[in-house]
Lab assay of single mutants.
Amino acid sequence: SEEKKKAKERLERLGASSELARELLDRANGNAEKAERLLRKLL
């Protein structure tokens, strides 16, 4: 979806690899905010 694509791009801008961004979104069930929080914990 367009929303998921935007979320993935945002995670990548924050420093996630394409693969990591995809994994985070999967774990967050597509929830962009939750995926971002997970990423911030990792960085």
Results as ranks from 00 to 15, higher is better:
residue 11 L to A: 01
residue 11 L to G: 00
residue 28 A to K: 01
residue 32 A to L: 15
residue 23 E to L: 15
residue 20 L to P: 00
residue 3 E to G: 10
residue 5 K to C: 12
residue 11 L to S: 01
residue 28 A to D: 00
residue 4 K to L: 15
residue 33 E to V: 10
residue 32 A to Y: 15
residue 14 L to M: 11
residue 15 G to A: 03
residue 38 L to K: 03
residue 16 A to N: 02
residue 19 E to N: 08
residue 20 L to W: 05
residue 10 R to K: 08
residue 23 E to G: 04
residue 40 R to G: 04
residue 21 A to L: 05
residue 31 N to Q: 04
residue 40 R to A: 07
residue 27 R to E: 07
residue 18 S to R: 09
residue 30 G to E: 03
residue 2 E to M: 12
residue 31 N to C: 04
residue 14 L to F: 05
residue 24 L to W: 03
residue 10 R to L: 08
residue 36 E to Q: 06
residue 31 N to L: 05
residue 40 R to E: 08
residue 23 E to C: 15
residue 25 L to T: 02
residue 20 L to C: 12
residue 37 R to L: 13
residue 43 L to R: 09
residue 8 K to S: 11
residue 26 D to T: 09
residue 18 S to C: 09
residue 22 R to H: 08
residue 42 L to V: 07
residue 29 N to T: 03
residue 28 A to E: 04
residue 41 K to R: 15
residue 39 L to Y: 11
residue 10 R to Q: 06
residue 6 K to Y: 10
residue 15 G to H: 02
residue 33 E to L: 13
residue 32 A to Q: 07
residue 35 A to I: 03
residue 12 E to Q: 12
residue 6 K to M: 12
residue 32 A to R: 06
residue 25 L to M: 07
residue 42 L to M: 12
residue 41 K to S: 09
residue 10 R to T: 05
residue 16 A to K: 02
residue 10 R to E: 04
residue 12 E to W: 04
residue 13 R to K: 11
residue 9 E to S: 09
residue 1 S to T: 12
residue 18 S to P: 15
residue 9 E to Y: 05
residue 4 K to P: 07
residue 14 L to E: 01
residue 2 E to Y: 11
residue 12 E to H: 06
residue 20 L to R: 03
residue 21 A to D: 00
residue 18 S to W: 07
residue 14 L to H: 03
residue 2 E to W: 09
residue 6 K to F: 09
residue 15 G to S: 02
residue 5 K to V: 11
residue 18 S to Y: 05
residue 12 E to A: 06
residue 33 E to I: 10
residue 1 S to P: 11
residue 16 A to E: 01
residue 7 A to T: 06
residue 14 L to K: 03
residue 27 R to H: 07
residue 25 L to Q: 01
residue 16 A to L: 06
residue 39 L to Q: 00
residue 3 E to R: 11
residue 2 E to V: 11
residue 42 L to S: 04
residue 13 R to C: 13
residue 2 E to T: 10
residue 14 L to D: 01
residue 14 L to R: 03
residue 38 L to M: 14
residue 10 R to H: 08
residue 35 A to K: 00
residue 2 E to F: 11
residue 29 N to I: 03
residue 27 R to K: 10
residue 32 A to C: 07
residue 12 E to K: 09
residue 20 L to N: 01
residue 8 K to T: 15
residue 7 A to K: 07
residue 22 R to L: 15
residue 28 A to C: 14
residue 40 R to P: 00
residue 37 R to G: 08
residue 18 S to K: 10
residue 3 E to Q: 10
residue 37 R to I: 10
residue 6 K to I: 10
residue 41 K to E: 12
residue 32 A to W: 12
residue 27 R to F: 09
residue 5 K to L: 12
residue 30 G to Y: 09
residue 23 E to T: 12
residue 21 A to V: 06
residue 15 G to V: 03
residue 43 L to W: 10
residue 26 D to I: 13
residue 1 S to G: 11
residue 5 K to T: 11
residue 10 R to A: 06
residue 40 R to L: 12
